[in-house]
Design a protein around this nucleic acid. Structure first.
Lengths: 103, 103
DNA sequence: TCAATAAGTCAGAAAAATATGACTACTACA
DNA sequence: TGTAGTAGTCATATTTTTCTGACTTATTGA
Protein backbone atom coordinates (compact mmCIF):
# COMPACT_ATOMS: atom_id res chain seq x y z
CA UNK A 1 0.00 0.00 0.00
CA UNK A 2 1.13 3.53 -0.66
CA UNK A 3 -0.45 5.17 2.33
CA UNK A 4 -2.02 3.94 5.53
CA UNK A 5 -4.16 6.89 6.42
CA UNK A 6 -6.24 9.64 4.87
CA UNK A 7 -3.30 12.02 4.51
CA UNK A 8 -1.80 12.85 1.16
CA UNK A 9 1.85 13.00 0.17
CA UNK A 10 2.10 16.72 0.85
CA UNK A 11 1.72 15.92 4.49
CA UNK A 12 -1.74 17.45 4.64
CA UNK A 13 -4.72 15.89 6.34
CA UNK A 14 -8.33 17.04 6.13
CA UNK A 15 -8.39 17.02 9.91
CA UNK A 16 -5.37 19.31 10.02
CA UNK A 17 -7.14 21.81 7.83
CA UNK A 18 -10.16 21.76 10.08
CA UNK A 19 -7.90 22.12 13.09
CA UNK A 20 -6.39 25.19 11.50
CA UNK A 21 -9.78 26.69 10.73
CA UNK A 22 -10.66 26.52 14.40
CA UNK A 23 -7.35 27.48 15.91
CA UNK A 24 -6.26 30.88 17.07
CA UNK A 25 -6.93 33.03 20.06
CA UNK A 26 -10.63 33.72 19.54
CA UNK A 27 -12.05 31.30 17.02
CA UNK A 28 -12.69 28.44 19.47
CA UNK A 29 -14.63 30.72 21.78
CA UNK A 30 -16.61 32.28 18.96
CA UNK A 31 -17.43 28.82 17.69
CA UNK A 32 -18.63 27.78 21.11
CA UNK A 33 -20.81 30.86 21.53
CA UNK A 34 -22.22 30.41 18.04
CA UNK A 35 -23.18 26.88 19.04
CA UNK A 36 -25.54 28.41 21.60
CA UNK A 37 -27.14 30.83 19.18
CA UNK A 38 -26.41 33.53 16.62
CA UNK A 39 -23.52 35.82 17.49
CA UNK A 40 -22.92 39.46 16.59
CA UNK A 41 -19.83 41.57 16.14
CA UNK A 42 -20.31 44.15 18.87
CA UNK A 43 -21.75 41.61 21.28
CA UNK A 44 -18.68 39.40 20.89
CA UNK A 45 -16.50 42.39 21.57
CA UNK A 46 -18.26 42.80 24.91
CA UNK A 47 -18.51 39.09 25.74
CA UNK A 48 -14.94 38.13 24.99
CA UNK A 49 -12.85 39.91 27.56
CA UNK A 50 -9.69 41.36 26.11
CA UNK A 51 -10.76 40.91 22.53
CA UNK A 52 -10.29 43.69 19.99
CA UNK A 53 -12.24 44.66 16.88
CA UNK A 54 -9.58 43.65 14.44
CA UNK A 55 -9.11 40.15 15.79
CA UNK A 56 -12.83 39.50 16.03
CA UNK A 57 -13.32 40.75 12.48
CA UNK A 58 -10.57 38.47 11.21
CA UNK A 59 -11.82 35.49 13.19
CA UNK A 60 -15.37 35.94 11.89
CA UNK A 61 -14.13 36.31 8.33
CA UNK A 62 -12.06 33.14 8.60
CA UNK A 63 -14.82 31.12 10.23
CA UNK A 64 -17.11 32.33 7.47
CA UNK A 65 -14.70 31.48 4.66
CA UNK A 66 -14.17 28.06 6.25
CA UNK A 67 -17.93 27.68 6.02
CA UNK A 68 -18.28 27.08 9.72
CA UNK A 69 -20.32 30.25 10.23
CA UNK A 70 -22.80 31.95 7.92
CA UNK A 71 -23.24 35.70 7.76
CA UNK A 72 -26.86 36.80 7.84
CA UNK A 73 -28.12 40.34 7.37
CA UNK A 74 -31.17 40.76 9.57
CA UNK A 75 -33.53 43.32 8.02
CA UNK A 76 -35.17 44.46 11.21
CA UNK A 77 -34.58 47.52 13.25
CA UNK A 78 -31.99 48.02 14.12
CA UNK A 79 -30.64 46.49 10.95
CA UNK A 80 -27.82 44.20 12.00
CA UNK A 81 -25.71 41.22 11.12
CA UNK A 82 -25.76 37.78 12.70
CA UNK A 83 -23.37 34.90 12.33
CA UNK A 84 -25.00 31.48 12.45
CA UNK A 85 -23.46 28.05 12.77
CA UNK A 86 -23.59 26.40 9.32
CA UNK A 87 -24.51 22.76 8.72
CA UNK A 88 -20.81 21.98 8.64
CA UNK A 89 -20.38 23.85 11.89
CA UNK A 90 -23.22 21.90 13.48
CA UNK A 91 -21.70 18.63 12.35
CA UNK A 92 -18.62 19.49 14.41
CA UNK A 93 -20.56 19.71 17.66
CA UNK A 94 -20.78 15.99 18.46
CA UNK A 95 -17.08 15.66 17.69
CA UNK A 96 -16.30 18.34 20.24
CA UNK A 97 -18.65 16.70 22.69
CA UNK A 98 -16.58 13.57 22.33
CA UNK A 99 -13.31 15.46 22.70
CA UNK A 100 -14.54 16.87 25.98
CA UNK A 101 -14.84 13.39 27.43
CA UNK A 102 -11.19 12.65 26.61
CA UNK A 103 -9.94 14.93 29.32
CA UNK B 1 -29.95 25.66 34.26
CA UNK B 2 -26.86 27.79 34.60
CA UNK B 3 -24.96 26.53 31.61
CA UNK B 4 -25.89 24.59 28.54
CA UNK B 5 -22.54 23.10 27.68
CA UNK B 6 -19.38 21.72 29.22
CA UNK B 7 -17.61 25.09 29.31
CA UNK B 8 -16.92 26.89 32.53
CA UNK B 9 -17.38 30.56 33.35
CA UNK B 10 -13.77 31.41 32.47
CA UNK B 11 -14.64 30.72 28.88
CA UNK B 12 -12.52 27.58 28.83
CA UNK B 13 -13.59 24.30 27.33
CA UNK B 14 -11.83 20.99 27.62
CA UNK B 15 -12.06 20.72 23.85
CA UNK B 16 -10.37 24.08 23.47
CA UNK B 17 -7.47 22.94 25.59
CA UNK B 18 -7.10 19.83 23.50
CA UNK B 19 -7.28 21.94 20.35
CA UNK B 20 -4.47 24.07 21.69
CA UNK B 21 -2.34 21.06 22.58
CA UNK B 22 -2.49 19.93 18.96
CA UNK B 23 -2.21 23.26 17.21
CA UNK B 24 0.89 24.88 15.81
CA UNK B 25 3.03 24.41 12.77
CA UNK B 26 4.39 20.93 13.48
CA UNK B 27 2.33 19.28 16.20
CA UNK B 28 -0.45 17.99 13.93
CA UNK B 29 2.05 16.34 11.61
CA UNK B 30 4.05 14.85 14.46
CA UNK B 31 0.83 13.51 15.95
CA UNK B 32 -0.11 11.94 12.65
CA UNK B 33 3.30 10.32 12.20
CA UNK B 34 3.26 9.08 15.78
CA UNK B 35 -0.08 7.44 15.03
CA UNK B 36 1.73 5.22 12.52
CA UNK B 37 4.49 4.23 14.91
CA UNK B 38 7.13 5.57 17.29
CA UNK B 39 8.82 8.77 16.14
CA UNK B 40 12.35 10.03 16.80
CA UNK B 41 13.87 13.48 16.98
CA UNK B 42 16.38 13.26 14.15
CA UNK B 43 14.04 11.26 11.96
CA UNK B 44 11.35 13.93 12.30
CA UNK B 45 13.89 16.55 11.35
CA UNK B 46 14.46 14.69 8.09
CA UNK B 47 10.81 13.74 7.48
CA UNK B 48 9.26 17.13 8.08
CA UNK B 49 10.54 19.35 5.32
CA UNK B 50 11.49 22.79 6.52
CA UNK B 51 11.38 21.87 10.18
CA UNK B 52 14.13 22.94 12.54
CA UNK B 53 15.55 21.41 15.73
CA UNK B 54 14.16 24.01 18.05
CA UNK B 55 10.59 23.77 16.84
CA UNK B 56 10.61 19.99 16.83
CA UNK B 57 12.04 19.97 20.33
CA UNK B 58 9.37 22.36 21.55
CA UNK B 59 6.58 20.48 19.79
CA UNK B 60 7.70 17.14 21.26
CA UNK B 61 7.99 18.66 24.71
CA UNK B 62 4.49 20.11 24.49
CA UNK B 63 2.94 16.93 23.12
CA UNK B 64 4.64 15.08 25.94
CA UNK B 65 3.47 17.49 28.63
CA UNK B 66 -0.03 17.30 27.19
CA UNK B 67 0.27 13.54 27.67
CA UNK B 68 -0.39 12.86 24.02
CA UNK B 69 3.07 11.39 23.47
CA UNK B 70 5.27 9.41 25.84
CA UNK B 71 9.05 9.63 25.83
CA UNK B 72 10.77 6.27 25.90
CA UNK B 73 14.51 5.72 26.26
CA UNK B 74 15.40 2.65 24.21
CA UNK B 75 18.41 0.91 25.76
CA UNK B 76 19.73 -0.68 22.61
CA UNK B 77 22.53 0.28 20.38
CA UNK B 78 22.53 2.88 19.37
CA UNK B 79 20.89 4.14 22.54
CA UNK B 80 18.05 6.39 21.42
CA UNK B 81 14.76 7.97 22.34
CA UNK B 82 11.34 7.21 20.95
CA UNK B 83 8.09 9.08 21.33
CA UNK B 84 5.02 6.86 21.46
CA UNK B 85 1.37 7.75 21.23
CA UNK B 86 -0.10 7.55 24.74
CA UNK B 87 -3.48 6.06 25.58
CA UNK B 88 -4.93 9.56 25.50
CA UNK B 89 -3.27 10.09 22.14
CA UNK B 90 -4.75 6.87 20.81
CA UNK B 91 -8.19 7.84 22.01
CA UNK B 92 -7.99 10.89 19.76
CA UNK B 93 -7.56 8.84 16.61
CA UNK B 94 -11.20 7.89 16.01
CA UNK B 95 -12.17 11.51 16.62
CA UNK B 96 -9.81 12.62 13.89
CA UNK B 97 -11.08 9.88 11.66
CA UNK B 98 -14.55 11.36 12.10
CA UNK B 99 -13.30 14.89 11.46
CA UNK B 100 -11.85 13.75 8.15
CA UNK B 101 -15.29 12.74 6.95
CA UNK B 102 -16.64 16.24 7.65
CA UNK B 103 -14.75 17.74 4.72
C1' DT C 1 -29.64 68.15 11.96
C1' DC C 2 -27.23 65.85 15.63
C1' DA C 3 -25.91 62.03 18.40
C1' DA C 4 -25.96 57.08 18.94
C1' DT C 5 -25.67 52.25 17.45
C1' DA C 6 -23.89 48.73 14.47
C1' DA C 7 -20.25 46.84 11.83
C1' DG C 8 -16.53 47.33 10.34
C1' DT C 9 -11.28 49.08 7.95
C1' DC C 10 -6.52 50.64 8.25
C1' DA C 11 -1.61 51.67 9.62
C1' DG C 12 1.50 50.88 12.87
C1' DA C 13 3.06 48.74 17.49
C1' DA C 14 3.65 44.92 20.47
C1' DA C 15 3.72 40.16 21.51
C1' DA C 16 4.07 35.37 20.36
C1' DA C 17 5.61 31.67 17.44
C1' DT C 18 9.23 29.85 14.47
C1' DA C 19 13.76 29.67 12.46
C1' DT C 20 19.07 29.91 12.44
C1' DG C 21 23.39 28.58 13.56
C1' DA C 22 26.63 27.56 17.11
C1' DC C 23 27.38 24.75 20.85
C1' DT C 24 26.86 20.62 24.42
C1' DA C 25 26.76 15.77 26.21
C1' DC C 26 26.74 11.02 25.73
C1' DT C 27 27.67 6.56 23.27
C1' DA C 28 30.02 3.82 20.05
C1' DC C 29 33.46 2.31 16.98
C1' DA C 30 38.11 2.32 14.69
C1' DT D 1 42.35 9.59 20.38
C1' DG D 2 39.37 11.03 16.84
C1' DT D 3 35.11 10.85 14.18
C1' DA D 4 30.26 9.94 13.74
C1' DG D 5 25.43 9.38 15.44
C1' DT D 6 21.71 10.77 18.57
C1' DA D 7 19.31 14.20 21.06
C1' DG D 8 19.16 18.00 22.35
C1' DT D 9 20.06 23.60 24.39
C1' DC D 10 20.84 28.52 23.84
C1' DA D 11 20.90 33.34 22.17
C1' DT D 12 19.46 35.79 18.62
C1' DA D 13 16.83 36.93 14.36
C1' DT D 14 12.84 36.72 11.48
C1' DT D 15 7.99 35.94 10.70
C1' DT D 16 3.31 35.68 12.05
C1' DT D 17 -0.34 36.83 15.01
C1' DT D 18 -2.63 39.88 17.79
C1' DC D 19 -3.52 44.55 19.65
C1' DT D 20 -4.25 49.73 19.65
C1' DG D 21 -6.40 53.74 18.39
C1' DA D 22 -8.11 56.56 14.78
C1' DC D 23 -11.19 56.62 11.09
C1' DT D 24 -15.42 55.10 7.93
C1' DT D 25 -20.19 54.09 6.37
C1' DA D 26 -24.92 53.20 7.00
C1' DT D 27 -29.15 53.30 9.84
C1' DT D 28 -31.96 55.14 13.37
C1' DG D 29 -34.31 58.16 16.72
C1' DA D 30 -34.77 62.76 18.94
Amino acid sequence: MTTTNACNTDGNCPAEGLLKQLSGKWKPQIFRLAAEGPVRFNALLRQLEGANKQSIAVALRELESGEILEKVVVREKPLHIEYHLSEKGKSLLPVFKTLETLL
